[in-house]
């Protein structure tokens, strides 16, 4: 049992982080905190992907000089594909954060607060 837990520790870490992030997104009232939750959530998934790509005893995915011409043994190099996917995902995460921050600025300009319940209060008062 212990061995089972240890052998997959990477997954437990990512799941814990992800739950943390998800809780932040749903449970927090402050918009920026929600956004931070979202970032943790995304980073957790990125970690998960990266851990898929790792191989015990392998090196970074850059070929050494002798392996250039098709003789490379895949066991000696990390799996590059998850890294590639995560390059994209990181960019997507940043872009989402950027847009979300933009929206937060708009919200702030309008309500002068970032607490969700206060905003609801203001909106209820103005009848919108």
């Amino acid at each position: 049992m212990f061995e089972y837990i240890v052998s997959k520790y990477n997954y437990w870490v990512y799941i814990f982080l992800m739950m943390l992030g998800l809780y932040g997104m749903i449970g927090k009232k402050n918009l920026v905190k929600k956004l931070i939750g979202m970032n943790i959530f995304q980073v957790a998934i990125i970690l998960f992907y990266i851990s898929i790509g790792s191989k015990v005893g392998a090196s970074i995915p850059i070929l050494t000089a002798e392996d250039l011409h098709g003789s490379a043994n895949p066991l000696h190099y990390m799996n590059p594909l998850p890294h590639v996917l995560m390059l994209t995902a990181i960019v997507v995460g940043i872009a989402t954060t950027g847009v979300a921050l933009g929206i937060i600025i708009m919200v702030y300009n309008r309500y002068k607060t970032l607490a969700e319940d206060e905003i609801l209060e203001i909106r209820k008062k103005s009848g919108v």
Binding site: L22, M38, Q42, F48, V99, A100, V107
Partner: peptide, 26 residues
């Protein structure tokens, strides 16, 4: 008037949706 808040909720929900989707890919 209510659009930015609506959009923010959409961002949060939409990101959860998209993240679940690419977690599924994983």
């Amino acid at each position: 008037d209510g659009a930015p808040m609506a959009a923010f909720n959409y961002v949060i929900m939409g990101t959860v949706g998209a993240c679940f989707y690419y977690l599924g890919i994983g």
